[in-house]
Structures are given as structure tokens and as C-alpha cells.
Nucleic acid binder design. Structure first.
Lengths: 343, 343
DNA sequence: GAACCTTACGAAAACGTTTGCGTGTGGAAA
DNA sequence: TTTCCACACGCAAACGTTTTCGTAAGGTTC
């Protein structure tokens, strides 16, 4: 079993110095054509590849982007990663992905691990627990050590850095408006507990849309779901004997679960109850009926986040003190769950 | 903006040598208690963390596992990653994930990139293109340089290394058997083109089950789908006017697409046509009716793959020459799409 | 006071690169 | 013959660690 070949070995074999080999491979004019060709031929033969680790150490940068997300088995986050990868690869960066599993501790550990030499900067969507604890020391610390951080989706207002978000409130408002415009008036919302930033924002957008139509806020129509894994029973209880003509769900899972529950109740979608979800995922697309939804453009978010980060990594210091927040447009994707078959 | 603090800086500040600092932090008895405490206090204050890159260079290992998968936005693969991460983190390893996007070239590039210093070993499911081209030099090369590789799911028989698979043929046979046992006799299969290893194996399992029931192979009931992104039209054409009582689909997408098409044709599931899919993903679970399926236990696969790899990485050389193939059990998950309502 | 032992620390090499600078050789100009 | 220059190459430092070995200072023993 061969080991990886190094400059030193080539040098020894060819009876020249290490620096000569290095320069020859870089086509330096310092080295005679003869030697250059010999070295290159030899290097090719032995499949020489410079050792990234040594380069990282020397250059004090790793050309690697650390991405930390709350869940890895999650359609939206993987689309974001897809976007990040695309840009990163174009620009010669590697991507390391870690999931925090929504645990504050794991987020901190992963971040510290990557921060101690493995990555030049971070793209991060914070864990549920982190939003709840409001402890952001790991992020602040990372930034104070000179590593830029870009927050996306689940961001933190208190932390000053680049951010990529969608206008959650506006998206929710658009969704609710659409329901109102097709005649719905008793619109329930399935949302998350308030400490999840995006959940709260979407709830606000929903309320804003209602106010514009002079519809008073009705606590009875708002369900804040705590345990996402067991949302079905909560939704079932909530929808029992409830007189509604539409449901706005802040994520895909809530939307399809609501659809199932309503289905079981014998309600027809969209005729009896219209449904709009959030996030254009695989579920909404393939469900029957397919679900109208607000698209979050995950890949776009990833692209923008990666660009922001790389700009900061490669930018001159002048740029360094400037933080940008990119807001990605959402848009409504019309599908069957809100088709207004005449009333 | 502070920079990361190094041993050298601490040494200078405390007016001792670098080696003293290093030893003190490791609680070496060589160093007096006094000095040890002083150094540790200082290190803590300045939040000293050893630089991973330097350690990697010194130790000639990165404590990082490279994972390369064909698609990142894919439920099954992300569950596998979840399993890998779990084991890796337990054992103090980092995980780098790259997607090949089913491109041979990107697979090669990613592999070479990670192989040149970023990872100690690989967990890999090969790209569609790679299976088609039958060019495995990058894998062979990586292994010949001393980096172990574990193949999973889409493996390559010709490459000798550790592997983690499910018994695709057996799983398919189980599925088909189940359809047969509930009385179905005209069972269509929606599968992939033959160069995709798992597709072919599953097709074989299907045929084997039929043979056991003395049902002759019927070309008319076999659809080999080339373009997975546009499977709907292919499936629609295929199912048009076809007399069948069951569909076995080799993946989730084919299964739900078939369900939709049948639905549009006015067929009832499971009464008119039963459906079984492969891979227990989010779609099968939430579809109405929920889909009976063969579970691939993705997370398990990840766990086993990671264990195999780490064993090899940490094992003494005696073990090195031995390659294992782990076969994960599949099992049938009964759901609504095959419930036999008396017939 | 010589020989020896502890204690506590420092020097240096090594991991694999890159790169600025120094230097020996040979030939050409003076 | 001397001086100078270009050419082709090597030396050494640097990145941040760990670890082996060496050693100075001080104390103990006879």
C-alpha cells in the first residue's frame, strides 16, 4: 500500500531540494526547463497532490465553509445546503456540514470544533434550544476571533452579522390575503411556539392580514404547537368541531397533517376548507390535493448566504465592518388546496 | 478583533517556552504545580483551543470522515448521514459531506479534494454516472493511498472494500410476496434502468417472487424509468388501459406518482390496485392513503458504515486486509395502500 | 568537595508546504 | 586575468502542535 507522496519524497528521489520541486511544479522561471519537466513527470506518475492540511496551516486559511443546521433530515435545510455547495464549489471552497439536532450544546460543540481550525467562516441556522436559551456566546466568540458568520432563516436579532432571511411576516400576510381574497373569513393558523423566530413572525403576518380586513384576532383560531413530532393529536383536538373555512400552516408538516385530519372529518379540500402551507417541499407537491404554499426558495438562500460569506472572507478589510441583511422574496405557489371551485 | 491565541503567544506572555505551555496544559508532572496553574488560568482567560489543523498535520490524521452522496436533497441519504454523524460524533470524528449531484466528475473532484488531506476515510454511495461509466479509478486510488472506503447502498461489486447494503432483491421479493399473498396476480413494477445497481436487484427480487408463484414474467408489466424527474408522464403512459391489481415501485417517488395517476384514472387504492414502495420516507408516511413500503433503515446503514470505517481507521493492521459486507435487514411496513378490504 | 540525583524547564525536530534570499557555477565583458 | 551577471538551485523560516532529549540549578550523600 503506497502512502501519499510528498514533496520531500520527490526531492529525494530526484536528488534535488524540496524547494526546487515546489517551484518546478509551479512552473517557476527560477527552475530550468529540464528540471521542471522531470519533476512534473515524476509528480504525475506518482499522482502527487499537495497536502491541504499543510497548506491550510501555512496560509492560515482552510478554504472551508462550516454549515450548521438544526436538522439534517429536513427538506428545506438540504435545499439551502445545495445552494451553498453550488457557490462554494465554484469558488473553490469546501463545505463541512454539521447538524445541531436542535440542541444548544451540540451547536456549541460543533461550532467550537470547526472554529478551531477546520473552517474559515460559518453559515448557521440556530437550534430551537438556542433561540429559547438566548445564549449566543459561541457565535459572538467565533466572530470576535475573526471568523465571519452568516445567519439564515432562524436568525437572531441581537447578533450583529450578515443575515439571509425571507420576509416571514410578509409571506404569511400574502398567504392569508390570498385566503381572504377567495372569500375565506374563518381562517385558522397552525403555528409554533413564540420563541421560534420564524413562527412568531409568520403569526404576526397572519394577524396583520386579518386586521387589514377588519377581522378581529380570535384566540380560538390560533394553535401554537410545541411538540412538532406529535402534532397530529394536537391538531386533531384543535380542529374538532371548529367552524373554519381555511387553514394557514407555518410549515409543510402542519399543513399535510391538517389536511389529513380534515379529510378524516369528512371535510373536502378545498371546497369546505382551503389550506395554505409554508415551504415548498416535496410533501406539498405530491400530496393529494397538492398544497398551495409559500415558497421559501431555499437554494437561493444558500446561494446568497454563501456569497455573503465568501465576500467577507475574501474582501479587503474595508468591507469587514459592514453587515448586510438579504431578504429573499417569497412567492405564492397556487395548487389544488386553494382552488376556488365556485362557491 | 482578537485573533486566535496560540501556544507561542501564551509562552511569550508568561515568559516560558512553548513546550512548557504545551506540557502544562496537559498536566505533565514535568512542570511545577505553580506553572501549570498559571498557564491554565491564562489559557482559559484567553480561550485557548489547540489548532486542529496543526494537530492534523502533526498526527497525520484529520479525525474527519468524508461522506459523498449522489444527492443532498434526498430523504434516504440524509437519514444515512444522520446515522454516520451519530457514530462519528461519539467517537470524536467530524463529518464532511459532499454531494456528487450524480455526476461522475464531481464525485472524482470531491473525492480527490477530500483525499488530499481533509479526510481520513470515506463513506460513499456512487453517482448514477459512475455506475454507468464503470470507472472506479478514483476509488481504487484513494484506497491505494491508505484511506479506507466504505460503500453503501449504491455499491460496486468490482471494488473490494467494506460495504453496507440492504438485500435489495430480498426486500423486493418480500414486497412482491406480500402482494401475491393478498391475492394480487397482475403486479406491475416501476423500476429504474439496469445500470443502477439497486434498481436491477429489486427487479430481480420481483421476478423471483413471481416465479415462485409460477407467474410468467411479463414485459408489459415492467417499466424501466430513465428520467426520474419526468417520471409522471412515463408512468401515465405505462398505466394507461393496463389491467393490473398491484404496483410495486422501487422508490417513493414512483410509488406516489403511480398512486396519483391511478387516482386520476378513478381507480381506488387499495381496493382496485394495491401499492408498495421502497424506502420509508416522509412521502409514503403522509400520503393519503399512506403507502405500504419496504423500509431501508437509512440511519442504521449510516451507523454501520461509520462503525466499519472507524474500525478500519483505528484498527491494528491485522484487520486491514479483511473486508466485510454488512447486510441490513429490510422490513415491510404495512400501511393503507395494501389493506385488503375483503374482496 | 566530589559525585550523584531531582526538579523544572528549554531546544529542536517533525508534520508538508511556500517563498524570499543567499550562493556557487559558468560564461561574457572589460 | 579580473569583474560582473545570469542562471539554477538550495537554505531556512514560517504556520501551530507534540514529544524526546538535553541540561542547569539546587540538594543530598559520603
Amino acid at each position: 500500500m503506497k502512502q501519499k507522496v510528498t514533496l520531500k519524497q520527490i526531492a529525494k528521489e530526484l536528488d534535488v531540494s524540496i524547494s526546487t520541486v515546489s517551484k518546478a511544479l509551479k512552473d517557476s522561471v527560477e527552475i530550468s526547463l529540464d528540471t521542471r519537466q522531470k519533476v512534473k513527470a515524476f509528480a504525475k506518475l506518482y499522482n502527487y497532490k499537495p497536502n491541504n492540511i499543510a497548506l491550510s496551516l501555512k496560509n492560515r486559511k482552510t478554504k472551508t465553509i462550516g454549515v450548521i443546521i438544526p436538522e439534517i433530515v429536513h427538506h428545506f435545510f438540504t435545499t439551502v445546503i445545495g445552494g451553498v455547495e453550488k457557490v462554494a464549489n465554484e469558488k473553490g471552497y469546501n463545505v463541512i456540514i454539521c447538524s445541531s439536532n436542535n440542541s444548544f450544546d451540540k451547536e456549541v460543540i460543533n461550532m467550537e470544533m470547526l472554529a478551531s481550525g477546520s473552517a474559515d467562516g460559518f453559515i448557521l441556522s440556530v437550534a430551537k434550544e438556542t433561540q429559547q436559551k438566548k445564549d449566543y456566546h459561541h457565535i459572538e466568540e467565533t466572530m470576535s476571533q475573526g471568523m465571519p458568520v452568516v445567519l439564515f432563516d432562524r436568525i437572531i436579532d441581537e447578533v450583529v452579522c450578515d443575515k439571509v432571511i425571507i420576509d416571514d411576516a410578509k409571506g404569511a400576510q400574502t398567504a392569508t390575503n390570498h385566503l381572504l381574497s377567495i372569500g375565506c373569513r374563518k381562517i385558522a393558523i397552525l403555528t409554533t411556539v413564540d420563541y421560534i423566530s420564524v413562527g412568531k413572525l409568520r403569526t404576526n403576518g397572519y394577524l396583520r392580514a386579518l386586521r387589514a380586513y377588519d377581522i378581529p384576532e380570535n384566540e380560538e383560531l390560533i394553535l401554537k404547537i410545541e411538540d412538532i413530532d406529535n402534532c397530529e393529536s394536537e391538531i386533531k383536538d384543535f380542529l374538532k368541531n371548529k367552524e373554519i373555512d381555511a387553514v394557514f400552516a407555518v410549515n409543510e408538516l402542519f399543513a399535510v397533517t391538517a389536511a389529513k385530519v380534515l379529510n378524516d372529518q369528512g371535510k373536502k379540500i378545498p371546497d369546505d376548507v382551503a389550506i395554505i402551507g409554508f415551504t415548498d417541499g416535496i410533501l406539498s407537491k405530491h400530496f393529494i390535493p397538492s398544497l398551495t404554499t409559500i415558497s421559501q426558495h431555499g437554494e437561493d438562500m444558500g446561494v446568497r448566504a454563501a456569497k455573503l460569506l465568501i465576500d467577507k472572507l475574501e474582501g479587503d478589510d474595508a468591507l469587514t465592518e459592514e453587515y448586510r441583511t438579504v431578504i429573499i422574496d417569497t412567492n405564492l405557489i397556487h395548487r389544488q388546496s386553494t382552488k376556488k371551485t365556485k362557491g
